[in-house]
Computed example of a mutant assay.
Amino acid sequence: MTDDERSRPMVHALLADGTTACIRAVTPRDREQLQRLYEEVSPESLRMRFFAASRRSATMAADRACAPPRPGYRALLAETQGQMIGLAEYATGEDRASAEISVAVADGLHHRGVGTLLVEHLVSAARTEGISTFTADALSENHEVLRLFADLGLRTARHFEGPEVRCTIELAEDEAYLSTVETRGRAADVASLVPLLRPDAIAVVGAGRRPGSVGRALLHHLHAGGYTRHLYAVNPAASSILGVPSHPSVGALPGTPDLAVLAVPAAVVPEIAEECGKAGVRALLVVTAGLDADQARALLAVCRSHGMRLVGPNCLGICNTDPEWSRSTAPWSARACGRTTRHFTVSPRNR
Rank of each mutant, 00 (worst) to 15 (best):
A289S: 13
A266R: 08
A301V: 07
S326G: 14
H223Q: 15
R282I: 04
A336V: 11
D294A: 14
I272F: 03
L300A: 09
E324K: 15
T340P: 01
A238C: 03
S213H: 13
L262W: 05
P323V: 13
R216D: 09
H343S: 09
G206E: 06
Y232C: 03
R209K: 12
L259M: 07
A207M: 14
R342N: 05
V261K: 01
I272H: 01
G225M: 08
G290H: 11
E271V: 15
H220I: 09
S240V: 08
G225P: 02
R339A: 02
V205N: 01
D258H: 04
G290E: 10
A237W: 06
I202D: 01
A273R: 06
S246P: 00
T321C: 11
G206A: 08
L300N: 03
E275C: 11
G206H: 07
I272A: 04
A224P: 03
A252P: 05
H306V: 10
R282M: 03
S305V: 08
R342M: 07
N314W: 08
A289T: 10
N320H: 12
R297V: 11
L291F: 06
R304Q: 14
A260H: 01
N235C: 13
L231G: 06
G226L: 13
D200W: 04
R216K: 13
A293C: 03
V204W: 09
I202M: 03
R342W: 07
A296D: 15
V281W: 05
A334F: 00
L291C: 07
D292G: 09
H247G: 02
E324I: 12
A334K: 00
V268D: 01
A301P: 07
T340E: 04
T256E: 01
L310S: 03
A203S: 11
S213K: 13
L300F: 11
P331E: 04
V302R: 02
R209T: 15
T340C: 03
R198S: 14
L197W: 10
C303L: 07
Y227F: 15
P313W: 02
S239N: 12
N320E: 05
L259N: 02
I272L: 07
V234P: 00
S328W: 14
C319I: 15
C315S: 09
L316F: 13
K278I: 14
G307P: 01
S328P: 02
A267C: 08
G208L: 09
A293I: 11
L291W: 05
A252H: 04
G212N: 11
I318Q: 10
P270D: 05
E275N: 13
P199D: 14
H221R: 15
A279V: 12
H220R: 15
P331V: 09
W332D: 00
C276S: 04
C315Q: 01
A207S: 14
A237Q: 05
H247S: 02
V311R: 01
V204A: 09
C337D: 13
W325S: 10
L285E: 06
A301E: 15
R335V: 06
V214K: 00
